[in-house]
Design a protein around this nucleic acid. Structure first.
Lengths: 205, 205
DNA sequence: CTACTAACGGGATGGGAGTCCCGTTAGGCG
DNA sequence: CGCCTAACGGGACTCCCATCCCGTTAGTAG
């Protein structure tokens, strides 16, 4: 038994354990939507989930831990990227999905909460990094395909282009706190695409 | 005396009151750098500032209130924008100043804290909006001048270009949590500029 | 220089969140 | 189908933070 069972919920992940996790994560998200990360407490989570307070502490340790786990859960629900054979349409699909996520009351609030948690907790920061870099890599493939089709210059950095297109939307969401519209998503795509066609996403030798 | 003195510190703003504010805001920033917004409490601020706890509550009300006031203070220290007569150089100066702010231990941590506070408090959110839209407007003038000089297409939206250049840096800082380098700032400028030259920042009719 | 009062400070109070102990429940193997 | 123990739950305990009351200090008008 040396150093086993460091993490509760790993030996008997079935049945009750899984139900508890689902209830806790849902309660966490509810509270995040309603009060934001700052208003999230272990106490409330346990109460709303109908679960013992001890359980929440044992399995998640802290509120950033809860948020990090929630992020991991959302990562698993991540929908696959589009691939229509037309870069502009693919990139627009990406931008629109970001816009929808950011605009959606539940998902948008959750994203903001995770971002807030990331500023003060390493585990939450890791969860963010993993979630987004993975998503970026997935979408970068549509750029790679476009390069192969000759729609964009050879050597165009797909990940950077995806980042450049998403960035202004998140920037508006959390930094300048301006409303984010579908038009912003569309403009972001056309700007990124214009720069890409000009070869601005091809790394210098 | 009707409804006067709603805000303490407005009738006798000299001497002690000013010293208290300076001490409190500095203590606030210290704690933000060390523990992040989540670890900021009125108690600690008062203790570190060497000030009565009651005073902090009376004048700022809550931790988001402290952060919002700190943001306003930083806004007043905002340095004026460059204007060298060359768009690329001006925009690079802007991007580099963002990079420096974001990279600087004290200022970077403070920015992240304010962003975190903005996710759960309307006053902090307002402070953010005001701070950034003002900064964006200031820098947008260098774009307007470049348009007048014929360096960029007629009708180019300066504010949007400034946003597009800053966004990827903040995106890396708080969303994907990747390291932000000077190279990122440089690339962001050349990409924004490429799109601008292609007319992607000219609004459709 | 003096009076008036804005603004500050100390300290008591209450409540809520984090931690711990131990009894109870139920998943999973034989 | 029954045992073993992983995992959960209740409740007591502690500590820290928000709030409040009232006495003290020091700007500022005259």
């Amino acid at each position: 038994m040396e150093q086993a069972s460091r993490l509760a919920g790993t030996v008997r992940p079935g049945g009750r354990t899984a139900r508890v996790r689902a209830a806790v994560l849902e309660a966490t998200q509810d509270i995040l939507v309603e009060y934001g990360f700052h208003g999230l407490t272990m106490d409330q989570v346990a109460a709303r989930a109908g679960v013992g307070k001890t359980t929440v502490y044992r399995r998640w340790g802290s509120t950033p831990g809860l948020v990090a786990d929630l992020m991991k859960e959302l990562a698993n629900q991540s929908s696959p990227h589009a691939d229509t054979g037309d870069v502009e349409r693919d990139l627009l699909a990406n931008a629109v999905s970001v816009w929808e996520a950011v605009t959606d009351g539940r998902l948008g609030a959750t994203l903001q909460a995770v971002i807030a948690a990331g500023t003060c907790d390493e585990e939450a920061a890791d969860a963010l990094r993993v979630f987004f870099t993975r998503r970026i890599d997935e979408w970068a493939t549509v750029v790679d395909l476009a390069v192969k089709r000759g729609e964009l210059p050879e050597g165009t950095d797909g990940g950077e282009l995806i980042r450049a297109i998403s960035a202004p939307l998140y920037y508006r969401l959390v930094v300048t706190r301006e409303p984010v519209t579908r038009g912003d998503a569309e403009r972001s795509v056309s700007r990124g695409l214009a720069a890409a066609r000009a070869g601005a996403f091809v790394p210098d030798p």
